[in-house]
Amino acid sequence: MPGWAAGFVRGVYIIFLLVPFVVAIPVSFSELAVFPPNAFTLKWYGVFFSSRQFNQGWQISLTLALIVACASTFVGALAAIAVMRYRIPGRRFIESLILSPLIVPEVATGIGLIFYFAYTGLLEGWTRLVIAHVIVTTPYVVRVMTATLYAFDRSLEEAAMNLGATEIQVFRTVTLPIVRTGLVAGFIFAFMASFENLTITAFVAQPGFGTLPVVLFGYVRDEFNPIVAVVTVVMIVGTSLVMLLADRLVGIDRLLRLRQAG
């Protein structure tokens, strides 16, 4: 491809990615839900932050995403270690099973879970929501961690041990620092997947547990005004903060490389 054509494709691609931002951000300051915005006002931000429903929504979403990200990073990392480092019978099967929520439509998972919860009467409130989310976010952690562990050279651990480090010291000084990138990446993917999840939440959340996407979805059925754009901006800012944090911790380029590897 000639240089100008490559540049053109790249330009179109970037515009395509940026359109939602270009639209959402100005509209969130608009009086009416029109583009270009017909005024500059913070009115809808005021409405958003004084709405009990939305406030509760983002607080639940944030809390849930943090708990879910921690839990699925822990579970997913252990599962990846089990699958990659030990000769467990049926390990390929176990791995596929853990990864299956990536392939099974979320609607199917959602319906399955709702039947399961209704039939067994198990798990209420937060627990139910967390478990449901962990099921769909763990595969991201497992993918990233299996890739990380696959690339991990075990002779590094032997070298450390040869130099006098006990198993615990080896884990702390060699294993953990090297797989840290993978752990952080897994955490972020899990966080994002939980934070923006609508389908599963819509099926399993009990009254009073409306996450931000669920609240928003319910809202746009009845009304359409710039508050939708406000929510979008809030979500963009939220996820950007997480990415920024990740960049501080390990560097964004390394995360992206891992995502490709995964």
């Binding site: 050279d153 002779s155 590094l156 032997e158 070298a159 040869n162 060699v174 090297i178």
Partner: peptide
Amino acid sequence: GMVFQNFALFP
């Protein structure tokens, strides 16, 4: 003191 085939230097 061991030198490994792939050197196993801590990256």
